[in-house]
Design a protein around this nucleic acid. Structure first.
Lengths: 150, 150
DNA sequence: GTTCTTGCAAAAGCTTTGCAGGAAG
DNA sequence: CTTCCTGCAAAGCTTTTGCAAGAAC
């Protein structure tokens, strides 16, 4: 990947080496801020703006992608690690979903709208099982309360 | 809807009347800024922050929703008008999609992840037919150029 | 040496908040 | 007359940009 940078006329610098290392090791989804904290442990004066610039560059080269998992900052990861996300609007939990779940949607949308979906860029929001259950429970206790008042 | 506001202890004010009117007439997706321009034609000193506050309030009451159609500002509309969106990452065109296209995805996700999706909040990004075609054409002319150089 | 990168500071874009005066009920 | 709303100004958060000093090649 460093060679790839070089061959495009880009320089191989400390911040880029560390950034790429960080992305390789990363388990999940890192925001620019989180990446900054990580890199700054090894090189304290790497600046956030440098990280944004490097992420942009790597994204242009196609090796990095970002996703939006809800309101709040974007998250970055290697393009090789892309996958879909389900994010609960209530508690914010993020579920990583295999791409197969989008197969049918992709097919329909291509046929009906001549549109190729990229199901990774934006998460699919909704409500997780736990929060559904909580909503049901609250509904029930609300009913009980109303009943007890009569 | 004005009665609904009143019954919740909220006041019916000029800005709220105009805001609701604007949302009823609106064809598509309006950003807060666009709503502001519209209302200010009738009441020049309605402030953007007032609009944000009113939209939040109406959203809390469940009559307004917002969606994110890409990078850039959120768009607001009556909850009765929600629908899915396909947005081209390249040219930005927005296609309104009927909800049926999400039926299969919803079913799978519920079964596999006990998760109820809300397919309206975030658009589905991807590439529209026109931009696909353009990419193919460019690829072809690139090939031609490379060939002519040999 | 030339060109690309960086740190810093500042600004941009969208949205939220504190406050004091004003309107709705 | 009490409570809620509003305009304004300011700040918040994420991301981008201009610039001059510095590093990679």
């Amino acid at each position: 990947m460093l060679d790839m940078l070089r061959s495009e006329g880009n320089r191989v610098t400390t911040s880029r080496r560390l950034l790429i290392g960080c992305l390789f090791e990363a388990k999940g989804h890192l925001t620019a801020e989180e990446i900054a904290e990580d890199l700054q442990r090894r090189a304290p004066d790497i600046h956030l703006s440098t990280i944004y610039r490097n992420l942009d560059e790597l994204e242009r080269l196609g090796v990095v992608s970002h996703s939006h998992l809800g309101h709040g900052p974007a998250t970055y990861h290697l393009s090789t690690k892309v996958h879909g996300h389900l994010v609960c609007e209530e508690c914010g939990v993020t579920i990583e979903a295999p791409d197969e779940i989008f197969a049918e949607l992709a097919k329909i949308v291509l046929k009906e709208h001549d549109f190729i979906i990229d199901p990774h860029h934006f998460a699919v929001l909704g409500r997780c099982g736990t929060c559904q259950q909580r909503a049901v429970d609250q509904e029930r206790s609300g009913e009980a309360e109303r009943a007890s008042r009569t």
